[in-house]
Amino acid sequence: MSSSNRKPFFLWRHLNKLRWLVLSTVFAMLVILPYVHVYQNYVSAHAYDLLAPSEQRFYDLMQTLTEPLTDDPAEDLDAIKGNTWSGTFWGFKLSDPLAAAGQMAASLKVFGPFLLTALIPILATLLLGRFYCGWICPATFLYELNSNLAVWLQKLGVRTGHRHLDRRLKYVVLALGLVLSAATGAVLVAAIYPPAIIGREIYYAVALGGFGAGAVFFVGTLLFDLLVARRGFCRYLCPGGALYSLLGRYRLFRIQRIVENCNDCAKCNAVCEFGLDPLRDGFGQECNNCSACIAVCPTDAMTFRVRFTDQPDQGPGHLGRQYRKQHAGEGRS
């Protein structure tokens, strides 16, 4: 069995750390950018003396931080603006594919320049699948922390929810959201889409002096995840997740199992936030390539492959007891 020496590329085991770095960076940006905006307001008002002492301290701090970067904060700090729903980087605009879909449904026409801003995310989703859900979404950052909280609560003896609903529910939510957007003429999907909610609610809270109604909805989803189903909103209800799952069905880069290295320990199934079945090659279109299963695998049995479809079920792992019993006497190289 010469192929039993196949090892995944060693850096893939550390991708999960990179993922947490990306997630926390995105979330930190969503908090920092509104403060940058407030600072720019103060700068363009030219009224430092009229600020309250606390505002002056904030002004001084921001000035110290941004002085090495720019000497015209009112203009230059406009370089990075926005959130994951739609943002601009040095004039280059990027938008969420769901924003494009929802806006097309609401206005019942296609606006080319806006669709172009969603093009790169769409192409990346076609290649990498539902990577947005695992790598960028600011709600994922909070939802995964929420999952960790659920584990701590279980250790304290609190019962948390582990129900399983039908995964196809989110496609219904997506279709319903788009149809209702078309019917009411407003982008309603934005009101039930957690990353969009988080982006704008943090902005409302910092720059406009208070949370809006979306914050209540988001706390509701956190409670849903805690009390009904682990990561339940992403798994069963999120319209964005449904869209990316559809786009990423034939993604090129997918996590696959190396059956020769697998010992059937099922840690991958336990760690999978989306409740998939990596142990039996059940990734499907919903895998978000988060690489948590690669990081957790003790025998290097998970790796990235370039394939358009999943491998069919490869059966029990070759290091597992069941496989060894079945193939006893064949000899291992």
């Binding site: 950018l33 509104p34 905006h37 603006k81 926005g82 959130n83 729903w85 739609s86 943002g87 601009t88 938008s95 924003a99 929802g102 806006q103 609401a106 206005s107 019942l108 606006f111 003429g185 407003a186 982008v187 934005a190 969009a196 982006g199 704008r200 902005y203 720059a207 406009l208």
Partner: peptide, 11 residues
């Protein structure tokens, strides 16, 4: 219908 509510204008 056209506005996606991203808040960039305000930002």
């Amino acid at each position: 219908a056209a506005c996606i509510g991203c808040g960039l204008c305000s930002e």
